[in-house]
Amino acid sequence: MKLRHLTTSIMAIGLFFMVACKSKPKDSEIMTTVSTAVQSTPGVTANVKEGVVTLSGTVSTEEEKTSAEKAAKSVKDVKSVVNNITVTPPPPPAPVAVTADDSLKTAVADVVKDFPGVKVDVKDGVLTVTGEEKADRWKTLKMALDALHPKKVDAKGLKVK
């Protein structure tokens, strides 16, 4: 009787180890597949433990977060997915580089010398145009002023003939 118990116990322990051992390489297999699956979403990394996938990293949109989760879920043997991905929207575009007043003043002086009827004041990056000029000449001037990268070209005080 004792011997039979022992045999059963050994078998049970053996079976337990087989299962336990078998589950370990499985995680690494899942890991490989999941990693490939989420590769299409840059910035996302995956970790697998006992069939549970944990996603982490940073993406710029909610869609990318969801799609990475879907991709991970679709992998065989994945029990569940913990989605720890953070969504950080891309930073707003860099502010427009406005030329400094000193450089603007020098450049504006060079430009307007050929437009005797026009005066251009420079203040805080804003060019205020006054006087009067023919429409096509004003267009040429406006092109030249815009090319200096001011903050604004205010020509409300200009009379266009």
Binding site: K139, H149, P150, K151, K152, V153, A155
Partner: peptide, 20 residues
């Protein structure tokens, strides 16, 4: 492009565009 700009904002007087 400058012609289209001139059509939308005749004589470029609005001052709401700086185009280079």
């Amino acid at each position: 492009l400058w012609n289209i700009y001139g059509q939308i904002d005749p004589n470029f007087l609005s001052g709401d565009v700086v185009m280079d």
